[in-house]
Design a protein around this nucleic acid. Sequence first.
DNA 1: ATGTCC
Length: 475
Amino acid sequence: MVQVKKIDDYRYEIPRTGNMRVPGTIYISQDLLGNFTDDEPIKQVMHVASLPGIVKSSMAMPDIHLGYGFPIGGVAAFDYDDGIISPGGVGYDINCGVSLITTNIDYDEARDKINILLDEINKTVPAGIDYKSSFRISIDDENEILSSGIEWAYNNGYATREDIERTEENGKMLSDISGVSEKAIKRGKNELGTLGAGNHFLEMDRIESIMDEAKAKKFGINNKNNLAIMVHTGSRGLGHQVATDYLMRLNEEDSSIKSEDDRQLISAYIHSRTGQDYLNAMNAAANFGFVNRQIITYKIRKAFEKIFGEDFEHLGIETLYSLAHNMAKAEIHNVDGNKRKLMVHRKGATRALPAYASSGYFNETGHPVIIPGNMGGPSYVMVGMPGNEEITFSSSCHGAGRVLSRKRANEQFNAEDVEMELKSRGIYLRATTKKAIIEESPGSYKNIDEVVRVINGAKIAAPVARLMPVAVMKG
DNA sequence: ATGTCC
């Protein structure tokens, strides 16, 4: 086993050895360390530490588990001038992320409508691996989506000004879209407003408890027991194709940065032609991801309008925030007293700016961090804590994190038991396959309460509210 | 995560 050194109750260090340029830091507790069945994810943290230009340390959040090259739950920042950008550090699902919609609907008062609401949303939001959208867009529209992101949704009546303000980067990453392949564009054409598969989901929650009343109010979480809707999806096949295209290109080019430890860590210098092309294509895919979540938000609004009729205006349905879990972004950070421009890779991790680093709607609270758990258990809304830029470049965890691989989940669970379990907790479920139910079973995930305790204890983010699922749609 | 192998 790899030696990890305990720093405090929430932080463990992997000292530099071999090719490592910086140490590794894992924000985790003794309890969560006990979940590891092997040290492969920890080795991934070490391998990332050897990549050119890495700054401070190769980090991982408490939801760490095995990923492609970089661990999921990984955070790594590289010097913009001397460092690399790596498709494996972003992941195949570029701008996979979460949006949370808040309402003023009391769950108990709406209880008899939950099931029909779920049916209506299930009818209008396609889910599953090969599901195509009924939402038709032209190639011109798609090009505009890739370059202007959520602005396209606003101009076409699918987003409000508030939606834009409450989306990370205002839903638009700067991109020259010429590096997005025709194949990627073709895949994206029928995918807008679709959920996808795997860990992607759409769920209705009730606010179970509020820990920070003032911030909750600003976040539109006005009362305990109010209904909220959480959407977890990304850039679908389009983003997947961008990742595939650039991994292939990097593997064909002599100038690529190859790792002795793991060929999945193949990278490009940020300033290289391929590095810039990937950055542009990744940003375009991110824009597609922002719009995908926005179109689903639009469909959810329509479903509520249909079911609640003329009362709709008074339901207070608002986007709290739409954020990215899988992204690399150029940011300025203080490193040992110097301001430096870095390429921060967050893979299964998300930005968690404190109030003073935020602008716009969240400048007095800090940015919301939305942390889904599993389909049968709690999720959290947290907020970035002051000083966290010195710890993790203002990054937080993205979820509970898997504790069992999909393969192991298939060996241990069966769909009927999981369905019964959810039913006994009063949770409605719509899933396209038994496989999805098994692989996403609550027992496949870590204890989110413990993950959140670590994030709070390490002073990364603080809890604002805890949510419990009442209806779940799985791809 | 993914038209789960063009």
